[in-house]
Design a protein around this nucleic acid. Structure first.
Lengths: 146, 146
DNA sequence: CAAATTTCAGTTCCACTGAGATGG
DNA sequence: CCCATCTCAGTGAAACTGAAATTT
Protein backbone atom coordinates (compact mmCIF):
# COMPACT_ATOMS: atom_id res chain seq x y z
CA UNK A 1 0.00 0.00 0.00
CA UNK A 2 3.03 2.28 0.16
CA UNK A 3 5.72 2.70 -2.47
CA UNK A 4 4.95 -0.21 -4.78
CA UNK A 5 1.44 -1.65 -4.83
CA UNK A 6 0.71 -4.74 -6.87
CA UNK A 7 -0.21 -4.29 -10.47
CA UNK A 8 -3.54 -5.72 -11.59
CA UNK A 9 -2.73 -9.27 -12.68
CA UNK A 10 -4.86 -8.88 -15.79
CA UNK A 11 -2.70 -5.97 -16.86
CA UNK A 12 0.70 -7.29 -15.81
CA UNK A 13 0.26 -10.27 -18.05
CA UNK A 14 -0.74 -8.54 -21.29
CA UNK A 15 1.90 -8.50 -24.03
CA UNK A 16 0.97 -4.90 -24.89
CA UNK A 17 1.66 -3.86 -21.30
CA UNK A 18 4.90 -5.82 -21.06
CA UNK A 19 6.12 -4.40 -24.34
CA UNK A 20 5.40 -0.91 -23.13
CA UNK A 21 7.27 -1.50 -19.88
CA UNK A 22 10.26 -2.98 -21.66
CA UNK A 23 10.29 -0.17 -24.19
CA UNK A 24 10.09 2.44 -21.43
CA UNK A 25 13.06 0.84 -19.73
CA UNK A 26 14.99 0.76 -23.01
CA UNK A 27 14.16 4.40 -23.62
CA UNK A 28 15.36 5.39 -20.15
CA UNK A 29 18.66 3.54 -20.55
CA UNK A 30 19.21 5.02 -23.99
CA UNK A 31 18.34 8.58 -23.06
CA UNK A 32 20.48 8.55 -19.95
CA UNK A 33 23.43 7.02 -21.73
CA UNK A 34 23.38 9.39 -24.71
CA UNK A 35 22.97 12.32 -22.35
CA UNK A 36 26.43 11.61 -20.94
CA UNK A 37 27.69 12.54 -24.41
CA UNK A 38 25.39 15.57 -24.68
CA UNK A 39 23.26 13.88 -27.32
CA UNK A 40 19.80 12.48 -27.89
CA UNK A 41 18.36 9.57 -29.86
CA UNK A 42 17.61 11.77 -32.85
CA UNK A 43 21.27 12.70 -33.14
CA UNK A 44 22.34 9.09 -33.24
CA UNK A 45 19.68 8.08 -35.74
CA UNK A 46 20.54 10.85 -38.16
CA UNK A 47 24.29 10.28 -37.86
CA UNK A 48 23.74 6.56 -38.48
CA UNK A 49 21.78 7.29 -41.64
CA UNK A 50 24.41 9.76 -42.85
CA UNK A 51 27.20 7.31 -42.16
CA UNK A 52 25.46 4.46 -43.90
CA UNK A 53 23.91 6.19 -46.92
CA UNK A 54 26.21 9.15 -47.41
CA UNK A 55 25.04 12.67 -48.30
CA UNK A 56 21.26 12.88 -48.14
CA UNK A 57 18.38 15.30 -48.38
CA UNK A 58 16.53 16.11 -45.17
CA UNK A 59 13.34 14.51 -46.50
CA UNK A 60 15.02 11.16 -47.14
CA UNK A 61 16.75 11.32 -43.75
CA UNK A 62 13.35 11.78 -42.20
CA UNK A 63 11.91 8.77 -43.97
CA UNK A 64 14.87 6.56 -43.19
CA UNK A 65 15.04 7.38 -39.50
CA UNK A 66 11.29 7.82 -39.01
CA UNK A 67 11.81 11.29 -37.66
CA UNK A 68 9.23 13.91 -38.57
CA UNK A 69 10.30 16.47 -41.17
CA UNK A 70 9.97 19.29 -38.65
CA UNK A 71 12.14 17.54 -36.12
CA UNK A 72 14.73 16.72 -38.77
CA UNK A 73 15.14 20.44 -39.42
CA UNK A 74 15.77 21.22 -35.76
CA UNK A 75 18.10 18.28 -35.17
CA UNK A 76 20.19 19.00 -38.27
CA UNK A 77 20.43 22.61 -37.08
CA UNK A 78 21.94 21.13 -33.96
CA UNK A 79 24.36 18.79 -35.70
CA UNK A 80 25.54 21.61 -37.96
CA UNK A 81 26.01 23.98 -35.01
CA UNK A 82 28.24 21.39 -33.33
CA UNK A 83 30.26 20.76 -36.46
CA UNK A 84 29.03 17.19 -36.93
CA UNK A 85 27.43 17.83 -40.32
CA UNK A 86 27.21 20.43 -43.06
CA UNK A 87 24.16 21.70 -44.89
CA UNK A 88 24.19 23.11 -48.40
CA UNK A 89 21.88 23.49 -51.38
CA UNK A 90 21.78 20.62 -53.83
CA UNK A 91 22.91 22.06 -57.20
CA UNK A 92 20.99 19.32 -59.02
CA UNK A 93 17.70 19.99 -57.25
CA UNK A 94 17.46 23.39 -55.64
CA UNK A 95 14.57 22.32 -53.43
CA UNK A 96 16.87 20.07 -51.47
CA UNK A 97 19.49 20.57 -48.81
CA UNK A 98 22.38 18.15 -48.94
CA UNK A 99 23.50 17.03 -45.51
CA UNK A 100 27.01 15.64 -45.20
CA UNK A 101 28.58 14.13 -42.10
CA UNK A 102 31.96 15.64 -41.11
CA UNK A 103 35.03 13.92 -39.68
CA UNK A 104 34.14 15.11 -36.21
CA UNK A 105 30.58 13.91 -36.81
CA UNK A 106 31.84 10.49 -37.73
CA UNK A 107 33.91 10.12 -34.59
CA UNK A 108 31.04 11.41 -32.48
CA UNK A 109 28.83 8.81 -34.15
CA UNK A 110 31.27 6.06 -33.22
CA UNK A 111 31.33 7.28 -29.65
CA UNK A 112 27.53 7.21 -29.44
CA UNK A 113 27.49 3.81 -31.08
CA UNK A 114 29.77 2.40 -28.40
CA UNK A 115 27.46 3.79 -25.74
CA UNK A 116 24.48 2.15 -27.41
CA UNK A 117 26.18 -1.22 -27.63
CA UNK A 118 26.60 -1.05 -23.86
CA UNK A 119 22.93 -0.09 -23.47
CA UNK A 120 21.81 -3.17 -25.41
CA UNK A 121 23.95 -5.27 -23.16
CA UNK A 122 22.45 -3.86 -20.00
CA UNK A 123 18.93 -4.09 -21.37
CA UNK A 124 19.32 -7.77 -22.20
CA UNK A 125 21.43 -8.62 -19.16
CA UNK A 126 18.75 -10.92 -17.66
CA UNK A 127 18.97 -13.18 -20.73
CA UNK A 128 21.58 -15.68 -21.84
CA UNK A 129 23.23 -15.11 -25.25
CA UNK A 130 20.99 -17.76 -26.83
CA UNK A 131 17.90 -16.21 -25.31
CA UNK A 132 18.94 -12.78 -26.54
CA UNK A 133 19.15 -14.01 -30.10
CA UNK A 134 15.80 -15.72 -29.82
CA UNK A 135 14.23 -12.62 -28.34
CA UNK A 136 15.55 -10.36 -31.08
CA UNK A 137 14.40 -12.78 -33.77
CA UNK A 138 10.88 -12.85 -32.36
CA UNK A 139 10.81 -9.07 -32.04
CA UNK A 140 11.83 -8.74 -35.68
CA UNK A 141 8.98 -10.99 -36.81
CA UNK A 142 6.50 -8.83 -34.92
CA UNK A 143 7.92 -5.58 -36.25
CA UNK A 144 8.08 -6.83 -39.83
CA UNK A 145 4.38 -7.64 -39.76
CA UNK A 146 3.74 -3.90 -39.82
CA UNK B 1 13.58 7.08 -52.25
CA UNK B 2 9.82 7.58 -52.19
CA UNK B 3 7.35 6.36 -49.56
CA UNK B 4 9.54 3.94 -47.63
CA UNK B 5 13.29 4.33 -47.73
CA UNK B 6 15.50 1.72 -46.14
CA UNK B 7 16.31 2.06 -42.47
CA UNK B 8 19.96 2.26 -41.51
CA UNK B 9 21.01 -1.36 -40.90
CA UNK B 10 22.84 -0.41 -37.72
CA UNK B 11 19.61 0.95 -36.31
CA UNK B 12 17.20 -1.68 -37.59
CA UNK B 13 19.11 -4.36 -35.75
CA UNK B 14 19.30 -2.79 -32.27
CA UNK B 15 17.09 -4.33 -29.60
CA UNK B 16 16.25 -0.87 -28.26
CA UNK B 17 15.01 0.17 -31.71
CA UNK B 18 13.07 -3.05 -32.27
CA UNK B 19 11.45 -2.78 -28.85
CA UNK B 20 10.42 0.77 -29.58
CA UNK B 21 8.94 -0.21 -32.94
CA UNK B 22 7.04 -3.12 -31.45
CA UNK B 23 5.79 -1.01 -28.59
CA UNK B 24 4.67 1.72 -30.97
CA UNK B 25 2.74 -0.83 -32.99
CA UNK B 26 1.15 -2.23 -29.84
CA UNK B 27 0.21 1.27 -28.73
CA UNK B 28 -1.39 2.04 -32.08
CA UNK B 29 -3.43 -1.18 -32.08
CA UNK B 30 -4.53 -0.60 -28.48
CA UNK B 31 -5.44 3.05 -28.94
CA UNK B 32 -7.38 2.44 -32.13
CA UNK B 33 -9.22 -0.51 -30.67
CA UNK B 34 -10.24 1.19 -27.42
CA UNK B 35 -11.30 4.27 -29.39
CA UNK B 36 -14.04 2.21 -31.06
CA UNK B 37 -15.52 1.96 -27.55
CA UNK B 38 -14.92 5.65 -26.81
CA UNK B 39 -12.20 4.83 -24.31
CA UNK B 40 -8.47 5.17 -23.73
CA UNK B 41 -5.82 3.04 -22.10
CA UNK B 42 -6.15 4.93 -18.81
CA UNK B 43 -9.80 3.95 -18.58
CA UNK B 44 -9.03 0.28 -19.00
CA UNK B 45 -6.17 0.32 -16.52
CA UNK B 46 -8.22 1.97 -13.81
CA UNK B 47 -11.25 -0.25 -14.39
CA UNK B 48 -9.01 -3.33 -14.22
CA UNK B 49 -7.58 -2.20 -10.88
CA UNK B 50 -11.05 -1.48 -9.52
CA UNK B 51 -12.34 -4.83 -10.68
CA UNK B 52 -9.43 -6.74 -9.22
CA UNK B 53 -8.86 -4.94 -5.93
CA UNK B 54 -12.32 -3.54 -5.19
CA UNK B 55 -12.95 -0.03 -3.83
CA UNK B 56 -9.72 1.96 -3.75
CA UNK B 57 -8.33 5.38 -3.03
CA UNK B 58 -7.12 7.43 -5.95
CA UNK B 59 -3.55 7.32 -4.69
CA UNK B 60 -3.44 3.54 -4.61
CA UNK B 61 -5.07 3.38 -8.04
CA UNK B 62 -2.30 5.61 -9.31
CA UNK B 63 0.43 3.41 -7.87
CA UNK B 64 -1.13 0.20 -9.11
CA UNK B 65 -1.71 1.37 -12.66
CA UNK B 66 1.38 3.59 -12.87
CA UNK B 67 -0.76 6.56 -13.76
CA UNK B 68 0.29 9.91 -12.36
CA UNK B 69 -1.82 11.25 -9.46
CA UNK B 70 -2.90 14.25 -11.56
CA UNK B 71 -4.00 12.09 -14.46
CA UNK B 72 -5.89 9.76 -12.11
CA UNK B 73 -8.02 12.70 -11.00
CA UNK B 74 -8.98 13.62 -14.56
CA UNK B 75 -9.63 10.05 -15.67
CA UNK B 76 -11.77 9.24 -12.63
CA UNK B 77 -13.73 12.43 -13.35
CA UNK B 78 -14.37 10.89 -16.73
CA UNK B 79 -15.38 7.46 -15.43
CA UNK B 80 -17.74 9.03 -12.90
CA UNK B 81 -19.30 11.29 -15.54
CA UNK B 82 -20.06 8.22 -17.67
CA UNK B 83 -21.51 6.28 -14.75
CA UNK B 84 -18.74 3.67 -14.70
CA UNK B 85 -17.60 4.51 -11.17
CA UNK B 86 -18.59 6.49 -8.10
CA UNK B 87 -16.46 8.76 -5.96
CA UNK B 88 -17.13 9.47 -2.30
CA UNK B 89 -15.23 10.43 0.85
CA UNK B 90 -13.78 7.58 2.85
CA UNK B 91 -15.42 7.76 6.33
CA UNK B 92 -12.40 6.00 7.85
CA UNK B 93 -9.87 8.44 6.40
CA UNK B 94 -11.25 11.75 5.33
CA UNK B 95 -8.21 12.51 3.20
CA UNK B 96 -9.20 9.77 0.82
CA UNK B 97 -11.79 9.38 -1.90
CA UNK B 98 -13.20 5.90 -2.29
CA UNK B 99 -13.69 4.92 -5.90
CA UNK B 100 -16.12 2.10 -6.60
CA UNK B 101 -16.82 0.46 -9.96
CA UNK B 102 -20.53 0.34 -10.93
CA UNK B 103 -22.43 -2.39 -12.73
CA UNK B 104 -22.24 -0.44 -15.94
CA UNK B 105 -18.56 0.08 -15.31
CA UNK B 106 -18.02 -3.61 -14.90
CA UNK B 107 -19.71 -4.49 -18.16
CA UNK B 108 -17.82 -1.71 -19.92
CA UNK B 109 -14.61 -3.17 -18.49
CA UNK B 110 -15.48 -6.58 -19.87
CA UNK B 111 -16.15 -5.06 -23.25
CA UNK B 112 -12.77 -3.32 -23.26
CA UNK B 113 -11.11 -6.49 -22.06
CA UNK B 114 -12.50 -8.42 -25.01
CA UNK B 115 -11.16 -5.75 -27.35
CA UNK B 116 -7.73 -6.02 -25.75
CA UNK B 117 -7.65 -9.79 -26.03
CA UNK B 118 -8.18 -9.33 -29.75
CA UNK B 119 -5.41 -6.73 -29.85
CA UNK B 120 -2.93 -9.16 -28.25
CA UNK B 121 -3.88 -11.70 -30.84
CA UNK B 122 -3.29 -9.36 -33.73
CA UNK B 123 -0.04 -8.10 -32.24
CA UNK B 124 1.33 -11.63 -31.88
CA UNK B 125 -0.21 -12.97 -35.07
CA UNK B 126 3.20 -13.55 -36.72
CA UNK B 127 4.14 -16.02 -33.97
CA UNK B 128 3.04 -19.57 -33.26
CA UNK B 129 1.42 -20.28 -29.87
CA UNK B 130 4.68 -21.74 -28.55
CA UNK B 131 6.64 -18.74 -29.74
CA UNK B 132 4.13 -16.40 -28.15
CA UNK B 133 4.63 -18.01 -24.79
CA UNK B 134 8.39 -17.88 -25.15
CA UNK B 135 8.27 -14.25 -26.19
CA UNK B 136 6.13 -13.24 -23.23
CA UNK B 137 8.36 -15.16 -20.83
CA UNK B 138 11.47 -13.38 -22.12
CA UNK B 139 9.73 -10.01 -21.96
CA UNK B 140 8.81 -10.65 -18.34
CA UNK B 141 12.40 -11.42 -17.43
CA UNK B 142 13.53 -8.14 -18.95
CA UNK B 143 10.79 -6.13 -17.26
CA UNK B 144 11.36 -7.76 -13.89
CA UNK B 145 15.01 -6.70 -13.93
CA UNK B 146 13.83 -3.15 -13.42
C1' DC C 1 5.38 18.49 13.44
C1' DA C 2 5.79 15.07 9.66
C1' DA C 3 3.34 12.43 6.21
C1' DA C 4 -0.49 11.17 3.01
C1' DT C 5 -4.25 12.47 -0.12
C1' DT C 6 -6.64 15.16 -3.45
C1' DT C 7 -6.69 18.80 -6.61
C1' DC C 8 -5.34 22.55 -9.72
C1' DA C 9 -2.29 24.94 -12.57
C1' DG C 10 1.53 24.84 -15.19
C1' DT C 11 5.70 22.64 -17.52
C1' DT C 12 8.12 19.65 -20.54
C1' DC C 13 8.79 16.48 -24.04
C1' DC C 14 7.48 14.28 -28.28
C1' DA C 15 5.04 13.73 -32.45
C1' DC C 16 2.62 15.78 -35.53
C1' DT C 17 -0.20 19.36 -38.61
C1' DG C 18 -0.77 23.54 -41.60
C1' DA C 19 0.80 26.70 -44.41
C1' DG C 20 4.00 29.51 -46.97
C1' DA C 21 7.95 29.86 -50.02
C1' DT C 22 10.81 27.85 -53.45
C1' DG C 23 11.66 24.87 -57.11
C1' DG C 24 10.90 20.56 -60.51
C1' DC D 1 -1.01 22.85 -62.67
C1' DC D 2 0.61 19.61 -59.52
C1' DC D 3 4.01 17.66 -56.60
C1' DA D 4 8.33 17.70 -53.55
C1' DT D 5 11.13 20.07 -50.26
C1' DC D 6 12.33 22.96 -46.45
C1' DT D 7 10.98 25.76 -42.74
C1' DC D 8 8.39 27.91 -39.05
C1' DA D 9 4.67 28.27 -35.97
C1' DG D 10 1.46 26.07 -33.51
C1' DT D 11 -1.36 22.03 -31.65
C1' DG D 12 -2.34 18.02 -28.74
C1' DA D 13 -1.39 14.15 -25.92
C1' DA D 14 1.22 12.09 -22.10
C1' DA D 15 3.93 12.35 -18.06
C1' DC D 16 5.29 14.97 -14.64
C1' DT D 17 6.12 19.06 -10.99
C1' DG D 18 4.79 22.44 -7.36
C1' DA D 19 1.98 24.03 -4.24
C1' DA D 20 -2.15 24.52 -1.53
C1' DA D 21 -5.80 22.54 1.42
C1' DT D 22 -7.24 18.89 4.32
C1' DT D 23 -6.66 15.23 7.40
C1' DT D 24 -3.97 11.59 9.89
Amino acid sequence: MTPADDRPARLAQMPTWLLNQASARAHRLLTDSLATAGSRGYHYRLLAALEEFGPSSQASLGRRTEIDRSDVVATIDDLVARGYATRSRDPDDLRRNVIVITGRGLSHYHRLDRLLVAVQDRLLSPLTPTERDAFVALLKRIVDAD
